[in-house]
Amino acid sequence: MRKSLTLHLGLIALLFALQFIAPAYHHGNLARIMVMASFAMGYNIMFGYTGLLSLGHAMFFAVGMYGMGLSATQLGLSIGPAFGVGILSALICSLIVGLLALRTIGVAFMIVTLMFSQTIFLTILYFGGITRGDEGFVIKQSTRQIFGLDLSDATTRYFAALLLFSLVLLGILWLVKSPTGRVLIAIRENEERAKMLGYDVWRHKLAAVVMSGTVSGAAGAAYGVLFGYVGASFSQVPYSIFPLLWVLLGGAGTVIGPFVGTLFMFYLIDLSSTVTDAYMLVVGVILVLLTMFARNGLMGIVRERWAKWLP
């Protein structure tokens, strides 16, 4: 416990320090990475810890983002309450999706989540009058103010992203060390046995879906707040595939894996985009290689070889 707490607090401290050390170009990148890593950590609760593979997490990200964005622009809420509405929307959405999708298992579960997510995307397009469809809408700088802080300012944005990231990271660390986290892992490992030890498997899975969707929605809402843009592309299939990719790459079922995977992919795509705009090719190749050769991802390998204690 000591070691793992040191590791995770150390990571937060390092990111804190980077704000002062790293060149300006990386500030924007890192802020984005921390928000997206929070998205991936949310995904990891379901996929990495409970063994539920969703192909529709873009919907939670988007519902959080639109819940925030629409309530700020349409209802005129200030950014704090709007952020709260975003999170609440994602919570309700994940509860409904969980109640329905958990009636299925395996491949059917994957397809159902994909279809629900696609429905959300099409709904956003259909109500183009309010959502501005494909184009999306901008959240004005004058709206993105809280406690006298300007969230569009690069430094403030960095620290806000770090705050979200730290809360999610430590929250998940606490979760996986808690009795509930232990049961989620048990369900992933052997559902039948978990049931025969007296655990209500269905209820735990539902809890995992709701926690996962809500965290992912919070990341979506934060993305809208910090980068000032809300768009339908965030509800499309690639944004369901990204968290899967980041988690697989960094290590499913590890607390820092999603961050490592997000960081790695971001800079890989950043580098490859100087060579070609077909950057999704890199995504494709890495997905295939990961499934074939490194199922446990980078941190999974670290855990196997060097650090069995890694949570």
Binding site: L53, L244, L248, M280, L281, I286, L287, T291, M292
Partner: peptide
Amino acid sequence: IVATIGLLY
């Protein structure tokens, strides 16, 4: 499924 998603891209 994950591998064929990769193949897709």
